[in-house]
Amino acid sequence: MSHHLLEGVQLCHRYADGTEALRGLDFCIRHGESVALVGANGAGKSTLLQHLNGTLLPTSGAVKIGGITVCKETLRDIRRTVGMVFQDPDDQLFMSTVFEDVAFGPRNLGLPDADVETRVRQALDRVEIGHLAHKPPFRLSGGEKRRAAIATVLSMSPDVLVMDEPSAGLDPRSRRQLIGLLKDFQHTKLIATHDLDLVLDLCDRTLVMHQGKLMADGPTREIFADAALLEACHLEKPFSMQGCPVCGRT
């Protein structure tokens, strides 16, 4: 396996209605890295993430996962490698109980029932919702849904976790717990988010997107210190790096 796990080469995507969502991205993420993807609404983050497991294919350019180009023929293996957590957990929890939902992926891999069961148990324990296994998704709180959605992905034992706005809609405490949980994961991570404080906590490296282009790529603290860059990309400094509103100190 290549040293470079996720790689984009001149990646472009145009939607059917003509929207140019990605305009030539080059990036490369190595094993074990935890990388943030930030950018204003409509910057193209979700579009980029969907290329990483082949739910969208590039109009031109290429995406490589562990050296393998994402295309129709390689989708099966790609989707085992890359686990995707979606923005709205209701979209990801489509089965009737949490257990069934988490089992959906392993069953598609053709695993026998006993293995499916152990995988589901492990995934649920990993996100600490083992007791919710037989609850229907619509009976879960926002934070529980988020954890269940993550469990559905963990049960596929992916190498890479790709997450779209994992902290959206969570109360401060659930958000804290989620950050704690993600910190413990050893996976390579790519997290698209508007929550820059979460980025500070979780990611050493940050990619900044603006209007379908990559504007910056570097250590998180350096990027967040670059006021001109943030301004140009319609972003704001994380609260923890803004001056104290009362005394003005950082």
């Binding site: 989707r79 979606f86 959906f104």
Partner: peptide, 23 residues
């Protein structure tokens, strides 16, 4: 739109048009 996203979520977990329920 939701149906589309659900479909994407299914695809991301190895769905290939065949549902494998619990026995």
């Amino acid at each position: 739109e939701r149906a589309r996203r659900v479909h994407v979520a299914m695809l991301s977990r190895g769905f290939e048009g065949e549902f494998h329920g619990a026995s």
